[in-house]
Design a protein around this nucleic acid. Sequence first.
DNA 1: AGTGTGAACTAGAGCGCTTCAGAACGTCCA
DNA 2: TGGACGTTCTGAAGCGCTCTAGTTCACACT
Lengths: 351, 351
Amino acid sequence: MDRPRKPTLDTVAGVVGVSRATVSNAYNRPDQLSAALRERILETAASIGYAGPDPVARSLATRHSAAVGFMLGQGLSASFADAALSIVLDGLASTVDGHDHCLVLMPGRDKGGPRPETVTRAQADVVVAYSLPDDAPALAAVRARGLPLVVIDQPVLPDTARVEVDDFGGARLAASSLWGMGHRRFGVVTFALHPDGHDGLVTPARLASTSFRVTRDRLHGYLDVTGADTPVWECTRSNRELGRAGARALLSTSPRPTALLCASDELAFGALQAVRDLGLRVPADVSVVGFDDVPAAEHSDPPLTTVRQPLAEKGRHAGELALRLLDGGRPGEPTRLPVSLVTRDSTAPPK
Amino acid sequence: MDRPRKPTLDTVAGVVGVSRATVSNAYNRPDQLSAALRERILETAASIGYAGPDPVARSLATRHSAAVGFMLGQGLSASFADAALSIVLDGLASTVDGHDHCLVLMPGRDKGGPRPETVTRAQADVVVAYSLPDDAPALAAVRARGLPLVVIDQPVLPDTARVEVDDFGGARLAASSLWGMGHRRFGVVTFALHPDGHDGLVTPARLASTSFRVTRDRLHGYLDVTGADTPVWECTRSNRELGRAGARALLSTSPRPTALLCASDELAFGALQAVRDLGLRVPADVSVVGFDDVPAAEHSDPPLTTVRQPLAEKGRHAGELALRLLDGGRPGEPTRLPVSLVTRDSTAPPK
DNA sequence: AGTGTGAACTAGAGCGCTTCAGAACGTCCA
DNA sequence: TGGACGTTCTGAAGCGCTCTAGTTCACACT
């Protein structure tokens, strides 16, 4: 079986009887040749099975790969248990795809984020990091390669673009609303403070050294209102089941909290379930608030009071920043997206 | 500002005083040079800020890009509403990442899958397609580029590796179990038959020309047992809310079905909710079955009877097939993964 | 001294494309 | 009639790396 060599630009050029440069122009600069010739080239290319310039060779020549890397803190299945990420990612994907860029996924393996080797070998010319621990090795690898970086929900690094949300303020907003209703006994259910797979009640020491900016800010926002002695339950990840377990633990203490502050909607959905599990009612016996305002928050039972952040916008904006950096733009000031409290039926004054 | 040119292999070679080939070997073939020299090279590289061979140039020279493309039928946010996909994707990602390959995401834009241009420009040397419509243009684009292809949940194409699940048999299994319990009035809630955003009761004509293999097989598996006149409600996507709406519609007919067969767990969770919405009980008044056995199925209220398919395994296997094709392996016979019925508490004999 | 051997390193030809500085050939206007 | 200009196309120099087929050299063996 005599494998026919894949056609290249040269092959096409040879068949049509023009120079390679002209064929290249047919694809990349239609104004550089006559429409008739271009037509002829494209037809010939199609007829001999040439599918267009090889992306890798093109990237080498142009020195950019038309791809943006996306680094996750965890594996995909873990991450997507949280709807928020997929919305952000989708916003990002559609922005970069609209500009003919691909999205290269780098899922976290070690708990700190993608492996550095993964980063070193990835063909991308800008990277966006989403909620990695502040000291993730992958971050260092990106810098070592000299790739532009945009971070979402992370502390600023020098020379890095950033999009963020006022997590502290948002959390404060939610907690204050509950406080205003008269609640005085709170419980907080949060996702990971550190990428070490630990869960359970959080000690002050652990609280003081949080690895994740988002966790830190939301937590401190809550505690700023409710007091530092508020019990905090840490879940290893943001999902319904873990939230349910955490909330159940918190609700089993006495005196029982009258309000549960959750670091995400997903966790809050679990809390809703936990309240039911114990034969109690939301919001009559226990109020529950979430954070994110994912679409499901509107349809939960009861509909969830939560802090809205513009998730799709976040992804889109990160995509635009990435594209801008690619164009040699400066990182500029961090963009801060607005948050607001969406009051639904999962909160009410305590009895 | 005098931008210092990024160091290359040559730069390092020059500084150390060896040939470029030797530096390359230091990275790729440690056995080709003395440990001492290698050490010296690596140190020098680090000191001048050389982060290793450029991935693009390497790809051009080796003629493979160490990336596998993944094509989705829909945008990410839509897709990830379904937990099943993220599990598959995670299995895939960890397999390829373990072999130092990246994952290039190509989310669907038009409803038929990724844009052909996206495919043409993607730097990947094998592509896996997940549940695209049988005639998606992206599929043609892959073949035009001559890339090896592995499909998940799709009809075989010539020269294509494939992993699949016995959707028909699984669906039959679930329906038979219900039939055996004595149910005679059924309703089916399914996700899209065509990528046209249509929803509502399915006409026989529409049923006859389904674009998605999975939909077709699960549906026919159900109807094979329950009869062709069973009402089928089509949701545009697989998510809880749409399932809830569909189930509600089906339950409002009279005589009311005593069992709801859902094409996915996500849809089934919605159905569970719909039954509650109507003041009915599962399984006393209505039995509900799902398909997939996502983790949440075990914890729903009540725990869901469903058809288990090995999701992570599916992704992992697709990854291995992709890797094998990369190595020049033959596609081989389609792999068929086993399904089984997991009976939990959402099904019971009708009253 | 002559020869064989293996380890350590190098020369240089690509990989498939882009791009820039021209060449070739009209055309248009003074 | 001549030269200024525009359009269309070409030649060739890279982009940064890998890899094959060497070359060198130290050393052991006869």
